[in-house]
Amino acid sequence: MIIQGPEIYYAASCLILVVTSLFCALVRYFHMCRPFDEEETYFYPARKLITIIYACFALPVVWLFRMDSPDACLFMRVFLVLLLPGAGVLSFRRFFFSKTRHRRLIFVLSGIIPLAIMLACWIYG
């Protein structure tokens, strides 16, 4: 498949998104500055969650391999709509409300359900 026209810009931006998200995920997981690395759970409680969120931004790579597929195109259209609200809610709750009740219900509603829909679309695409 030869990419022509505006599709080359879409493919380049998707490739930049995937590579940048993987780089940010690796940096977030392995790098902690000197005074904060001793008690990482206190200073940055959502570090592992943010690493997973950065890694989820590499999922649109399926569109790079199957640009002609309508399923992959559908996945690209709904990807950010499904990922960003759940990721925002989970990281916000992890920073400020980690000790409150009903934490598992919020985690399932805002995290697991959108991720399950995205993974099903990714597999189908």
Rank of each mutant, 00 (worst) to 15 (best):
V81D: 00
D37C: 13
I3S: 09
G125T: 02
Y9T: 06
G86T: 04
I8F: 10
Y54E: 00
C33V: 14
D71Y: 13
R101D: 11
L15V: 03
M118N: 01
M32F: 07
M67V: 04
S98D: 08
W63E: 07
A58E: 01
G111K: 04
P85L: 02
L82D: 02
C56M: 15
I106R: 06
A55C: 14
S91G: 06
P85M: 05
G125N: 02
F107Y: 13
M76V: 06
G86R: 03
C14G: 05
I3T: 09
A120H: 14
V61C: 07
F57R: 04
A11V: 02
A116N: 12
L80N: 08
P85W: 01
L64K: 00
F95A: 09
K48F: 13
A58R: 06
R66Q: 09
G5K: 02
V108Q: 06
T100F: 05
L15M: 09
Y54A: 00
A116P: 10
C14L: 07
L22Y: 13
Y42L: 09
L80E: 06
L115V: 14
L80W: 05
V78L: 10
K99P: 01
V62R: 14
V18I: 12
G88W: 04
Y54D: 00
F36Y: 10
H102C: 09
W122L: 09
R101T: 08
Y44L: 15
K99G: 10
C73M: 09
F97Y: 13
R66Y: 13
A25Q: 05
I113S: 03
P45L: 03
I106Q: 05
F36M: 14
F79K: 03
L84T: 12
